[in-house]
Amino acid sequence: MFELNKTLTYQGLVLFWKQIKDFLITLGEIGVNFSRVVRYILNLRINISETIEQSKRFAFDSLPISLTIVGMTSIIIAMQLAPELARQGGASYTGMLSALVMVRELAAVMSGFAIISMVGSSFASEIASMAVTEQLSAMKVLRVDPIEYLIVPRFCAGVLFMPVVFIISATFGLACAGLVSNQTADLSLLNYVTSMWHGLYVRDIFIAILKSSFFGGTIALISCSCGYATRGGAKEVGLATTKAVVWSFLAIAMWDFIFASIFYL
């Protein structure tokens, strides 16, 4: 006999609808949390000591991996680019190109990825495990809003310290690229630095700082929201962490696209 609810198409559609619903619910949760975070910030209800604590985590914990990723990427790019440019008589453009790529795209996005994997995932899993062990409930009964105590400081840390991570890793990346060009293409460091100045625009730097600030805030907000909404047990804590990472990656890609469209189109 033909049973509609056993057909593959039907089950596929059900699954698809469930995915869409989950997506919309998550989006809603992030939106609600964002509005509550903003309200606390506007009322200047920011827990300073917690914010400092989280900022340390945000900036220092992620720095080794940010520097490694940004450093490695810029070394690899310079390794491939510098000899080629030198061969085609464009050696003096190496610095400029590196600066453009580093400031406009590479440093912010790569350190964003590093921060998602280092900090975002730990935000998500720690808040998720607090949720499933009723610590968030206990906090509410003690009349301390977990949004104010946990999420606002993490959000502020992200907004304030992602630009710092960006600046440090961009500087480090440019230095790496310079050294590699010097080694692989016999480009003098002076030449590299002079050329680099031509590629460094104040406007680019400001946009990139603003962009990293958006990245940092978004990663913190998404990671905390995914953790906050967790119900269940160990498996759900894992799922929440995965979700936080995936959503943060997507959000970063989206912001990057939006920034590029607004400022460079």
């Binding site: 062990t133 009723e134 009964v141 003690l142 009349r143 301390v144």
Partner: peptide, 28 residues
């Protein structure tokens, strides 16, 4: 209103002292 939870629900990132002092320190 106060509640003592079945499984304690202590804040695992805070010491015993900080747990007990929590509402006194953190409630607005």
């Amino acid at each position: 209103v106060a509640m003592a939870f079945q499984y304690s629900a202590l804040f695992d990132f805070l010491s015993v002292y900080e747990n007990i002092a929590f509402p006194l320190v953190e409630r607005k």
